[in-house]
Design a protein around this nucleic acid. Structure first.
Lengths: 196, 196
DNA sequence: GTCTATAAATTGATAGAC
DNA sequence: GTCTATCAATTTATAGAC
């Protein structure tokens, strides 16, 4: 993939996150990338095409978070904690424009077109990876999916509350609590599944 | 307040929810309200002014939910369940354009202007009312605020996940789980506060 | 491949008739 | 108070020189 194409996608990701799809103009993206407007159309045939490339890049970004957590975490539980830590570390920026994945979903899921379908992957991949960690902890498939959904909701809700109140400490506090309950949840679970 | 003014705010609320602030055109709002474009400017001096009126209307909408829960719930716990039920009942619409409060926050909190500050009220009022219910259940101030934040995050996260997957059943399942744990949380809490 | 200039359409806002 | 017509600015996209 061309170096300049990557540069444009990176710039578009920044502008899209900060201003939303409708609020993003290609002139702003070009300025952020340090390129003249016309050049964008050599690499992307339309604004929608560029946005689709940004979604793909965000999906790969999530994959990188999964890979990091798998490398850094010595147990499934530690990997889950690593995943939560990724949001904790970015709290200061997350309360400025919201979680990039949540913001993209809000922007694109409301559209009727193909971009709406692409945004599914942003959360489907999170649910899949998280459920895998819980299965590795001995949870049955249903319980693992349940816990995965619960964790994703808690993280995204925390980001939104932090954004609404414009307070990174609110976000960090929620994430610490989520982290704290990760281990507890496995022990004190009243589910019918037995977790080791 | 003029009847036509209310009608415009209602129309603007619908369009703003469906398309976001930047994606909302005054021509669309006028069409939704069944009025010619120029008429909007007699009641609102600008698009931003109209959006501010929509935020105020959403805050009043939340107040109405609180009032309903207080009238329908015979105990603080029932009132909390009523609050969650409001989202459960609207699940089919909530997964189309997302939660109106969360979507507004995402749209407006990213702006630097006065609209950003107004959006604070959407979640500050929820936290305040919810914390009051827990205090009525005997929780200390800190625990009550903690539980309030937890519940708001769980609901908003559920709405976002339902939107991302475009599946009202996903949202309803999360909300049922939240409702189920409302009572349990009070009994099995390992917090230092004593709840009755 | 890169960049300038501009076309074509949209949109927030206003003027002014009624 | 209401509505039509329109201005001025913006924005997606393209044409065409280099």
């Amino acid at each position: 993939m061309s170096d300049k194409r990557v540069q444009i996608i990176r710039a578009a990701g920044i502008v899209l996150h900060a201003r939303g799809y409708a609020g993003t103009t290609l002139a702003l993206v070009a300025a952020e990338a340090g390129l003249p407007l016309g050049n964008l159309y050599y690499y992307f045939k339309s604004k929608e095409d560029l946005a689709a490339a940004v979604v793909d890049a965000r999906v790969r970004e999530l994959d990188a978070i999964f890979a990091y957590a798998e490398a850094a975490g010595t147990s499934p539980l530690r990997r889950l904690e690593c995943f939560v830590a990724a949001w904790h570390d970015g709290a200061d920026e997350l309360v400025v424009h919201g979680c990039p994945y949540g913001a993209l979903t809000h922007d694109l899921a409301r559209r009727g077109d193909a971009l709406s379908n692409k945004s599914h992957a942003l959360f489907a991949s999170q649910l899949e990876w998280l459920a895998r960690q819980w299965r590795a902890l001995g949870a049955g498939p249903a319980t693992a999916e349940e816990r995965a959904a619960e964790l994703v909701c808690a993280i995204q809700g925390a980001c939104l509350l932090g954004l609404a109140l414009h307070d990174p400490e609110v976000l960090r506090r929620r994430l610490r609590e989520i982290s704290r309950r990760l281990a507890d949840g496995i022990v004190t679970s009243n589910s019918t599944e037995v977790l080791t």
